[in-house]
Simulated scan of single mutants.
Amino acid sequence: MKTRTLVFSVGLLSLAAFGANAYDGTNCKAPGNCWEPKPGYPEKVAGSKYDPKHDPVELNKQQEAIKAMEARNQKRWEHFKNTGKFVYKVD
């Protein structure tokens, strides 16, 4: 029983310590948009992987895969509607 009380007490102390340093949401750019970087973080990180310099072909791959999937599903649905049997590979 003492161990459980000790663990609970340590948990409360760590929660209280975290709560003292928690962000209070006072510097909001817009309602609900209260994110702000840590102090000293630069406004723009030059040369990071998050710069908008991505190849449009690479960005378009997922959309193309989704279009192909929808076309396959349409063929499967048409075959099922006409025959009453579901076939995974419809050519």
Rank of each mutant, 00 (worst) to 15 (best):
A20T: 15
S9N: 01
N21W: 15
V90Y: 12
S14M: 12
K53G: 12
L12P: 02
Q62D: 01
S9K: 10
K75G: 00
K44L: 08
K85S: 08
Y23K: 13
T5C: 02
A16T: 10
S14L: 14
T83R: 11
P39G: 02
D55R: 04
V90M: 08
T5Y: 09
K75Y: 01
V87C: 03
P52K: 06
N33S: 09
L13G: 06
G11A: 13
E70M: 13
T26Q: 09
A65R: 12
A17V: 07
K44S: 10
L15C: 12
P52R: 09
N33D: 03
K38C: 08
F80I: 03
T83I: 08
V45T: 11
F80S: 04
N73C: 00
P52N: 07
Y88R: 15
P42L: 12
V87K: 09
Y23S: 08
L12E: 07
K67G: 01
T26K: 13
P52A: 07
W35S: 06
Y23I: 08
A71L: 02
L6D: 08
G11M: 08
V10W: 05
S9L: 14
L59Y: 03
Q74V: 05
F80M: 08
K53C: 03
A46Q: 07
T83S: 11
I66L: 15
E36P: 00
T3D: 13
Q74W: 02
N33G: 06
A22P: 05
F8I: 11
S14D: 05
D55S: 11
A20G: 12
E70D: 09
L13Q: 05
H54G: 14
T83D: 12
G19P: 07
W35T: 06
V57Q: 15
N82E: 14
K85Y: 08
P39K: 10
V10Y: 07
Q62R: 00
G47K: 15
L59P: 02
P42V: 10
V57M: 08
V90Q: 14
D51T: 14
Q63V: 10
F18C: 07
K89I: 03
K67N: 06
S9C: 10
F86Q: 12
V45G: 06
G40I: 00
N60S: 15
A22H: 11
K49W: 15
P42N: 02
Y41E: 00
F18L: 11
E64H: 11
K29M: 05
V45M: 13
K38Q: 11
D55A: 04
I66E: 15
D24F: 04
L6W: 07
T5V: 05
K53T: 15
